[in-house]
């Protein structure tokens, strides 16, 4: 599977907002049935990168390739139509709507004719529940339940199942485990594995190294808008990755630096980096 052309590829992509450069020379590939983990601390440019992938921002320089052909998205809708789906932390779901209704928002199944086209609640509920259960969330069995009553992990799973059901080929998961407990996060990671097994290309954004290492095939560490490291599964240990994310220096080195600065400057902490 991994030797065919990548579904989505970035080649030397730069993105700047006016004079501020946010992304420099980003090159990434993600293939079908592969999970690419994008690691980075806050402010490293992860969200800008996601938005560029999802068609919200246009790259200032560089190209985006889909199935080997250069593409330019006019907006998020077009990216979505081409099969790029973004699932955000709380997944575009509506807490006070039923599972069936929220699953089909915008594409409601109807029955009947003319002005009497009626929303087909039964079909909607059945399809939604089946789609989620196929992902291994068997606890969801009533499509009339409100989304807000689900746990964070179940909501994530519902959003992912929804994206897959409506034909996503590339799944961009924006910090799906950030707000979740250990058990819930494991839930979501299982869903990610299932999506991978089904041959989706997954871009998994996180700053939790443990979660990334559980499901990732390929890792890219983003520091100040540039890719600082790019490696495959098993090539680096957890400590090495954490240190990379902290800016390429080990935590121990950093602490020593601060201490020596304070010694030399009568206990003043160092000024913020330029």
């Amino acid at each position: 599977m991994s030797d065919n052309t990548p579904i989505l590829e970035l080649q030397n992509v730069d993105k700047s907002f006016g004079p501020i450069d946010v992304l420099h020379n980003i090159s990434l590939k993600v293939r079908a049935g592969e999970v690419l983990c994008l690691l980075g601390d806050n402010g490293a440019g992860k969200s800008t990168l996601i938005k560029t992938l999802a068609g919200v921002h246009k790259p200032t320089r560089g190209t985006i390739l889909m199935d080997g052909n250069p593409v330019e998205f006019s907006g998020p809708r077009e990216a979505q139509e081409m099969g790029i789906s973004t699932v955000h932390q709380f997944g575009g779901t509506f807490p006070l709507m039923s599972i069936g209704r929220s699953f089909f928002v915008g594409v409601e199944p109807t029955k009947g004719w003319g002005p009497f086209k009626v929303y087909d609640r039964k079909t909607a509920n059945e399809i939604a529940v089946k789609a989620v259960q196929d992902f291994g969330i068997t606890r969801i069995d009533d499509g009339d339940r409100l989304v807000g009553g689900l746990s964070g992990g179940e909501r994530q799973s519902l959003a992912i199942a929804r994206a897959v059901h409506f034909g996503a080929r590339v799944l961009i998961l924006d910090e799906p485990t950030a707000a979740l407990g250990v058990k819930q996060a494991a839930h979501v990671l299982r869903i990610v594995n299932e999506a991978k097994r089904r041959g989706l290309a997954v871009v998994f954004i996180t700053h939790q190294v443990m979660h990334a290492m559980t499901v990732g095939d390929h890792f890219a560490v983003l520091i100040r808008g540039a890719i600082a490291a790019d490696f495959r599964r098993g090539e680096k240990t957890r400590e090495e990755i954490t240190d990379l994310m902290a800016g390429g220096e080990t935590m121990a080195d950093l602490e020593a630096q601060i201490e020596s600065y304070m010694d030399a400057h009568e206990g003043q902490p160092p000024p913020p980096a330029q």
Partner: peptide, 19 residues
């Protein structure tokens, strides 16, 4: 009706869903 509920629940998500 479903669109109205979706819009009141989360307008950005509703728009992204094509409403």
């Amino acid at each position: 009706g479903n669109w109205i509920f979706a819009m009141g629940g989360d307008e950005v998500s509703a728009r992204n869903a094509g409403i």
